[in-house]
Design a binder for these strands. Structure first.
Lengths: 208, 208
DNA sequence: CTACTATTCAAACGATCGTTTGATTCGTGA
DNA sequence: TCACGAATCAAACGATCGTTTGAATAGTAG
């Protein structure tokens, strides 16, 4: 038995369905009744396993972001060991883990849309949660970019990184016209996406 | 008297407050009771003047987008008359009207955040409404970009325009780290923003 | 002034929200 | 087998949701 260890199946099923429905209808728009019905679990299971809807939302983020940002930092560390590293390398260290995760079989596709929603939400609690738990990752990358773009002022760099983050979030969420052609695999589609984003972002960061 | 012309004050007050609260809490997150309370009007006034919450949301978009896209098309037409037009000119025609509107005194700041939410929402009805009413504007701009980027395939162009749109939406919504310094005017802040966005987007579109 | 419509208002509708409760079932250690 | 905590369940809580109703008020045309 696993005392104090909540039922894995129920807990994971709730997290997966919540991720999907939060991506589709937003945090306020997806109700716990929809979530639990789709997950085929009892309504009370959410409060039993997570305590509240807010905690469930935070856990949806934690489950993906812990792994994602670990991969990002690992990739960044590997890049920084190379003295010949380029802007494209650093961008790739940031973008590729996100695209790879969004490709995984356990439904990471929905999570990038949840992330996009988080950007759109101005909810103070959610922003504080993300900043408290993952702000250091963004700070590390900002430092790496700063070294590679010495001619940019700090303000200017932040300006551009903000745009890059927005474009990345937007593109990854698969908004708009980007549609995968049926004759290219999901794998190569993501590979192309990463190359596009890296090239586009590098050009923007280097402009002028 | 103005028969069939709803009370201007009440109607406008609802639209303004709704825009602010939709930007802050989302379409599902902002209730009609919050809206009408903040607007100091009766709860039933929303259904009286707009019919439903969905219609109110659409009217919030229509009020701003009619004017915004008119300005965009006007600016584009002026640009296209010039045979020496550049990519930056077309981008400016798209970006500047949005930034100018977000600067106006009647609270356009909130609207760009509503727009960002609309991008994040996957709501089919809302997407169809926007596509039906304003899709032709995007199509016109895509044509203008296409002429200036003849070496890009149609797919490649759409890829990049999608990223540009994402970056623009994100940046305009004032997300992340971009903060106006207290010693620069709102006017020059927006001017700088437009220049940043145009420069960044042009570099990305021209890359490779 | 009167008649009529446009508008505002308080109140209530049924539905759904997140959360809590208390009983029941499950699963294992002793 | 028994006991006990973990987990699930149906049911209900009060609150809030969007919407509707019917009466009260405002404001003008005749």
């Amino acid at each position: 038995m696993r005392p104090l260890q909540p039922n894995f199946s129920t807990r994971e099923r709730i997290l997966g369905v919540a991720e999907t429905l939060f991506a589709r209808h937003g945090f306020a728009g997806a109700s716990l009744r929809q979530v639990t019905a789709a997950a085929k679990v009892n309504l009370a299971a959410v409060n039993y396993h997570f305590g509240s809807k807010v905690s469930l939302i935070e856990e949806v983020f934690r489950r993906r972001l812990d792994e994602l940002n670990l991969h990002r930092l690992t990739a960044l560390a590997a890049i920084e060991a190379n003295p010949l590293r380029t802007l494209e390398d650093v961008l790739d260290a940031f973008i590729r883990p996100a695209l790879e995760q969004s490709m995984d079989s356990t439904g990471g596709t929905a999570f990038v849309r949840v992330l996009a929603r988080a950007y759109a939400e101005h909810d103070e609690r959610l922003r504080k949660f993300l900043s408290d738990n993952y702000g250091h990752v963004l700070r590390e990358f900002a430092g790496a970019f700063s070294k590679l773009l010495p001619r940019l002022s700090k303000d200017e760099l932040y300006w551009r990184l903000d745009i890059v983050a927005g474009a990345l979030t937007y593109a990854m969420a698969d908004f708009g016209m980007i549609k995968r052609k049926s004759n290219v695999s999901e794998q190569s589609h993501r590979e192309q996406s990463a190359q596009h984003l890296v090239r586009f972002a590098a050009a923007g960061l280097r402009a002028e």
